[in-house]
């Protein structure tokens, strides 16, 4: 167990370094974009003197490295700062949206993961049959079309034609839990279609791969039923690659859903990031990007730990 703790500590330290590098890259990236916040907010009504006043007030007239160091010092002390565009506290601005994003990601994952893994196992069990082929075809088709298209199809059939679900996810945290689930059903279903194929194919491939192994042959020769061979003997050993794929898809559900957010008007973090980039609101861009980066770092760490824990050979290295 000690070795795991050591790995975790090592990886976390590396993660923090990664975040630092990312913050620097983001800062330079936003600086490299044409225009700054003053020009973006005032738009065409900008006059040279109002732009200058804006910059003075927000300290945008200071040299770049001083602004970065100021931001970093505050950030290290746990102060995310205020949005430059409307002066609101970033923690307050991001808090609700992060919760919304995580809510949608968990909702989608709780449908997608069991269904994908289940279908993957079934596909391995009945491989090369019409069942296997049709499942592959359907999931691969849904991953091949852009997600907004799936979203629009969902809206056309489930909202406009039949009025089963609302077409926009107008959710608040004051709503009861089930109302919130109902309101975000369509984006969750859409995301399920988007991420399912990857997980399902990996589950199938990992299991099929193991079916060639001698110990599976042994189990079959013992006369065990097929489902038992797959579920009890092959599946536990196939877990490591499956977990990795699931985790990558979870990360996608947190950071990559801005298109779905736009289609369903879901108030998540993605839209905030896009808006902040276009108005050059650097502290908000930094905060959202670091949250996204941290999500990746932490989820990857989780994937590695889970792979080690589920694999005795890695748990007790010689």
């Amino acid at each position: 167990m000690n070795s795991i703790l050591k790995i975790v500590a090592q990886r976390l330290a590396l993660g923090i370094f990664t975040l630092f590098v990312i913050s620097l890259v983001i800062f330079l990236g936003v600086e490299a974009l044409p225009g700054d916040l003053a020009e973006a907010v005032l738009g065409r009504s900008a006059l040279p003197e109002t732009v200058a006043a804006f910059r003075r007030e927000l300290r945008l007239d200071l040299p770049m490295h001083i602004r970065y160091i100021e931001w970093l010092t505050a950030f290290v002390q746990g102060d995310l700062g205020n949005s430059l565009a409307n002066g609101r506290e970033i923690s307050e601005l991001i808090g609700v949206r992060l919760a919304n994003t995580l809510f949608l990601a968990l909702f989608a994952a709780s449908i997608a993961v069991p269904v994908a893994v289940g279908l993957g196992i079934l596909a391995a069990l009945y491989r090369e049959t019409w069942f296997d082929k049709s499942i592959s075809m359907v999931t691969l088709s849904t991953i091949s079309v852009p997600e907004f298209f799936i979203g629009y199809i969902m809206i056309a059939f489930l909202a406009v034609q039949t009025n089963i679900f609302p077409s926009i996810s107008n959710i608040t945290w004051e709503m009861p839990f089930f109302d919130r689930l109902y309101a975000s059903a369509l984006p969750a279903i859409t995301l399920t279609f988007v991420v399912m194929a990857h997980m399902m194919r990996m589950t199938r491939a990992a299991i099929v791969n193991l079916l060639m192994s001698p110990y599976i042959e042994m189990a079959t020769l013992k006369g065990l039923p097929r489902w038992r061979v797959i579920l009890m003997h092959a599946f536990p050993n196939a877990l490591s690659p499956i977990i990795n794929v699931i985790i990558i898809n979870l990360a996608f559900l947190v950071v990559g859903v801005v298109v779905v957010e736009v289609v369903f008007v879901y108030p998540g973090l993605g839209q905030l990031l896009v808006d902040s980039v276009s108005s050059r609101d650097l502290p908000v861009v930094q905060a959202s990007c670091l949250i996204f980066a941290a999500t990746y770092v932490l989820l990857n760490l989780t994937a590695d730990i889970l792979s080690i824990v589920t694999n005795p050979r890695m748990l007790h290295p010689k």
Partner: peptide, 19 residues
């Protein structure tokens, strides 16, 4: 007042009586 940038989303919301 609900912010809906996507024009298709806006139209659908009006059609389905959400706005």
């Amino acid at each position: 007042t609900i912010g809906i940038e996507d024009s298709t989303a806006r139209t659908n919301a009006l059609k389905t009586g959400q706005i």
